[in-house]
Design a protein around this nucleic acid. Structure first.
Lengths: 259, 259
DNA sequence: CCATCTTTGTGCACGCGTTCACAAAGACAT
DNA sequence: ATGTCTTTGTGAACGCGTGCACAAAGATGG
């Protein structure tokens, strides 16, 4: 997803139309590679030498034919009659995803979610290094979060340039997100992971992926409602339609104050 | 762009093949309805009475034809030559998504991310009510988080049943996720939002949506790497292939300890 | 060396989602 | 009423993603 994005799926993701690459890997496949990688890494830790497409597909929760086709975009890394070499595949996928290099990342907006992300172990283990934690609230400056000092957003441009940061994570309130985004892009960031419930406008060449907790829940609610409706009332017609719209207010702040 | 799946794509989402409904709404459309709803709510707060498909599409970051087709699945709610009535559309979408009713939710695993979600304002404003915060660590029991006391997972079944909870949010470490999931499902939960980096197995009729921070970053890294490659070297061939795979360890704990 | 068995890699068909382009519908002015 | 202008709603074509089903490739045993 969500997206599968969500796609994303995704539905997810914004600026990037390129498919015209040497051996272009479909977006849907790229989105699944991290999934395969996780399953393979687990096998690797159990010292499993080889794995069949059927087994790996089960572990990753996908169709085996789909998995084989996905791998075929990377090249022919399997052995017929045997399966795939786990270590080799881990390396190939890591390389393809660009995880064999170091990716410095800045997190902007150190509220609850920023905290959670700063402490998230899944970053460091995959080549993602938190270069800096930034917040507009000067009161937070210097405070240690996950062993790193929070720095003021005034330092954003300098940090992005000196640390060669190309990926930014936005966990600010929605009102500040676009401005933070603009500054990140101006400073040289070309990929943004946005947790703020806002549509970000970015120039061509900049990728945006969005993670929206509220949207995911709303999608679940839709299906949940349909389940309930199907159970009770078989041939459901138009809903009664009470025209007294209880307008939901968009108070939706992701954090208390940050950007 | 990147994921169309999304959607999850949608990339995301697992158990749900149904499309055979009276007037079945495509999954891709459902995934966008929350997006439209957010844009419409913003317009509503500015007291904008009507909006054209073009304007709304721009605000939501989608193609206007797509938006019109999406709305056409809900019915003919627009007026040709004028546009859509904002308030009416807000109500129709809210109703379609099931947001006009109350959705009690439990959050299992009160680490950093659980904290962040408990404090997330986007829930309450859309009919989602946090019925309980659960954690396996007895030391947390009774502690207040976002005004609610953390309760022990022993109480899970009772809470789910008595509060009629149908949606569960899992923010435990990956090792505990499947077990927590099984217990939630056994107790009656039929929709799960999973933040743990694990593939959850659920019986038919249960929906799972996954949000994986690490995967999103890896997808960005892939595109980022490709950009860098395109800049430097035009006709990029096989990458040099340093065959010294620096195997990434799957230490990936989402939280310190919870489930 | 041949037969058999396993598993990959892929050709092909199908279905969903996206987008274009346009006819139909209504607003509005004269 | 009639004509013009705006904007919706949708038919139709296209492209991507998925999954079946099978041939090709290699392992293994006799």
């Amino acid at each position: 997803m969500a997206t599968g994005r969500s796609t994303q799926n995704n539905p997810n993701a914004a600026a990037s139309n390129r498919r015209s690459r040497g051996r272009g890997i479909p977006d849907a496949t790229v989105a699944r590679l991290p999934l395969y990688l996780r399953a393979l890494t687990a096998l690797s830790e159990r010292s499993v030498p080889t794995v069949s497409s059927e087994e790996l597909a089960a572990a990753a929760g996908v169709n085996s034919a789909k998995l084989r086709k996905d791998f075929s975009y990377l090249g022919s890394y399997g052995t017929r009659g045997v399966g795939y070499d786990v270590e080799y595949l881990v390396y190939q996928i890591s390389r393809e995803l660009g995880l064999t290099q170091d990716w410095p990342v800045v997190i902007v907006g150190i509220g609850n979610l920023g905290h959670a992300l700063a402490n998230y172990g899944g970053f460091a283990s995959r080549g993602f290094r938190v270069a800096a934690l930034l917040d507009a609230d000067a009161a937070l400056s210097g405070q240690l979060v996950a062993g790193l000092p929070v720095r003021h957003t005034d330092e954003m441009e300098e940090i992005v340039r000196s640390e060669r940061v190309s990926i930014g994570v936005i966990t600010t309130p929605p009102g500040a997100a676009q401005q933070v985004c603009d500054r990140l892009v101006a400073a040289g960031v070309t990929s943004i992971l946005n947790f703020a419930p806002t549509v970000l406008n970015v120039p061509d060449g900049v990728d945006v992926r969005k993670v929206d907790l509220s949207i995911e829940l709303q999608i679940l609610a839709f299906h949940e409602q349909r389940k309930a409706g199907d159970d009770l009332d078989d041939a459901d017609q138009e809903v009664p339609a009470t025209p007294s719209a209880a307008v939901v207010s968009e108070g939706t702040e992701l954090e208390e104050a940050a950007g």
